[in-house]
Simulated scan of single mutants.
Amino acid sequence: MARRFSGPRLVVATHNRGKAAEIGHLLGDAAIDVVSAAELGLAAPEETGATFEDNATLKARAAALEAGLPALADDSGLCVAALDGQPGVITADWEGPTRDAMVGMARIQRELTARGVPESPEARRATFVCVLALAWPDGHCELVRGEMPGHIVWPPRGTQGHGYDPTFQPQGSALTCAEMDPAAKSAISHRGNAFRKLIAACF
């Protein structure tokens, strides 16, 4: 049985404004005061885990301990089958030191081209993964995982969303994530799937 969240305030352990806004939207119906780690001036721990689960747990526990409040962390990334699951847990690192998503998208395209991967949905299969960790100051942590299958497209399309959304076309859709209305994206996204699991279990 999962531990249930109770209390008026939840820390979202992120310094990424796009991600914080998306998480706030996904928790909108829960009547919780959501505050980001950046707003509280919390340090961002080094993400040294080998899996999404490791990194989400590390971030959530660090924020919960420092803030003295329950904290929610997300660790997510893009796993491209033809690149042996890369960039995976280091998806953000592929964006370079300035964290420019266009740099990361261009690198994926270069790597696929270098390996001679054809421009077909089957050959360019990819999965967006999101793991959510909800931690309490006593160290207890609940984990859920959501996934969204699809494929890599080039050139990037769309101006909605954030990160690698312009280069990812979900399975069964004619649009990239960046061409979708935010509500339509949340209905099928890896993060939306993970949040529905978390809300059902803990809220």
Rank of each mutant, 00 (worst) to 15 (best):
A184V: 10
C130I: 08
G28F: 03
D165V: 03
A82F: 08
E122R: 11
L10Q: 01
A13W: 01
Q169Y: 02
R157T: 05
L198W: 02
L65D: 10
S189H: 02
R191Y: 06
G88K: 03
T159D: 13
A194Q: 05
S186F: 11
K185D: 05
D93C: 09
I90Y: 14
A133T: 01
A64Q: 07
I199S: 07
M148W: 14
H140I: 01
R99L: 12
A81P: 03
G49E: 10
I199L: 15
Q171N: 08
I23A: 01
A194G: 05
T167E: 06
P149W: 04
A126P: 03
T14Q: 04
G7D: 02
L175H: 12
W154H: 12
M105C: 14
A67V: 11
I90W: 13
R110W: 10
G158V: 08
G7Q: 01
L69E: 14
L198E: 13
L40V: 06
G158P: 11
V12D: 00
I108W: 07
E22W: 08
S173Q: 15
P155V: 09
A126R: 04
G85L: 09
L72T: 02
G85H: 07
I188N: 03
I32K: 06
E147G: 07
L65N: 13
E122S: 09
N16Q: 07
G150L: 13
G158E: 07
D29C: 06
G146V: 01
R3F: 00
P118C: 03
R3A: 04
F5H: 04
A178K: 06
P156L: 06
D74L: 03
L72Y: 02
T127W: 12
V131E: 02
L78Y: 00
E179N: 11
A21D: 09
D93W: 14
P149Y: 01
E53D: 14
D93H: 15
R110M: 04
L78Q: 01
G96W: 04
V35C: 04
L72S: 03
L65A: 14
G96N: 00
S120Y: 10
R4H: 12
L58P: 05
L143C: 00
H140E: 14
N16W: 08
L10S: 05
D74A: 00
A21H: 07
L83Y: 00
G192E: 09
L26E: 02
G161W: 05
W154D: 12
E111V: 01
R107T: 06
A62K: 01
M1C: 11
A106Q: 14
G41A: 13
A183R: 15
R17F: 11
F52G: 02
A101V: 02
A184W: 09
W154C: 12
M1H: 13
